[in-house]
Amino acid sequence: MKKTVTTLADGRELIYYDAGDGEARGGYPDRRPLEPAHRNAQTRFDELQGEWVAIAAHRQDRTYKPPADQCPLCPSTEDRLTEIPAPDYEVAVFENRFPSLGGPDGGRCEVVAFTSDHDKSFADLSEDEVALVLEAWADRTGELLARPDVTQVYCFENRGEEIGVTLSHPHGQIYAFPYVAPKMDRAVSRAAAHRARTGRNLFDDMVEREAADERVIEQNEHWIAFTPYAARWPYEAHLYPKRRVADFTELDDAQRAAFAPIYLSLLRRFDGLFPAADGGPGRTPYISAWHQAPKRAPGAQTEVALHAEIFTVRRAPGKLKYLAGAESGMGAFASDTTPESAAIALRGAGR
């Protein structure tokens, strides 16, 4: 992998990742007359819930559903200058121009452009392209965790307008939190309690239990995907490496080589749930959320397991799963499907 680090006109960092020793893409300067980047986000603590909240009022002005010919994630041309100055790229990562984190309280938000092809989706990538994205995730995880103002690194992808995506170009984001996010904080506590009670790892026990159940969607020698026993969303899948690791940086060569086929297959199964009008695969809206062990949380590095939680807000053709009063107001989920039936549907939806 070749990594090229450069700087955008407003001082933000831009990193190109290439599979081979190709062109030095950093030779293309950012020619836009940009104002200095926003770095005024705040974090505030909710004492009642025991959770941190990011305050980022400048995000009201972020780019919102631009037409394809004005996409800020496409490569730059002579007539159109974008966030990526090079005329082509494989994977590009840059600091978000409208970050939720990164003010005086620390943290950082990055955008990961998976491909220069505006019309692709992650599921359309080749296995080699996915392998390069994985290398970028691992590299960013290692570098961000090394920062003193970062506690947890969260890589994720939102796809589809129903999810709230405002840029249709295939991309994801990385949030480098200066604190432990609420969901991870609960997982760390549960894992510690399980270790104290049983002497075993909670994630290992759960994966072993799920591997013997009817909710397994697919697996290979190094990875397993299943619908969890207490799934919150109508269609939800979790993907784990069979050998527990704390984050992307700890994956060995065999795990990395086996990743792309199963991850692509899983995303394509989600697309197969709701076919397009012409009978072909659809573009199911989803969130793919990668959980990694945080720093400075007692026991987290040895107890928390890297894994993805993938889910869609679509519960049936033309119908969305809205978070109603109990779910939005109390965090008390009620699923519209059984996890067992969702696993059957996902097993049958591959392409």
Rank of each mutant, 00 (worst) to 15 (best):
R190A: 15
Q152N: 11
P234I: 02
M184L: 09
T198N: 10
E157T: 07
R186I: 11
A193H: 10
R195A: 14
N158Q: 06
R232K: 14
N220Q: 08
H194Q: 05
D149P: 05
R209Y: 12
F226Q: 00
M184E: 02
L167E: 05
A211P: 02
V188C: 07
Y175T: 02
F177P: 01
Y175A: 01
P228W: 06
D205K: 09
F156E: 00
P148E: 15
D204P: 05
A212R: 15
R195H: 14
V188I: 10
A225P: 03
A196Y: 10
D213L: 09
G199I: 09
E161D: 13
T227V: 15
W223P: 00
A193T: 14
F156V: 01
L202M: 11
A230L: 12
Y179Q: 00
G199R: 11
P178L: 02
Q173N: 03
E214S: 13
E208I: 08
Q173C: 03
T151W: 05
F203I: 07
G160E: 00
D149T: 10
P234S: 12
E210Y: 01
V180G: 01
Q152L: 08
M206V: 14
S189P: 04
T227A: 14
F156Y: 07
Y229C: 11
P182R: 03
G164M: 08
E210F: 03
D205L: 09
A192Q: 12
F156H: 02
V207M: 06
T198P: 02
A187M: 13
Y235K: 05
A237E: 01
G199P: 04
D149L: 07
H171L: 06
E210Q: 09
E208D: 12
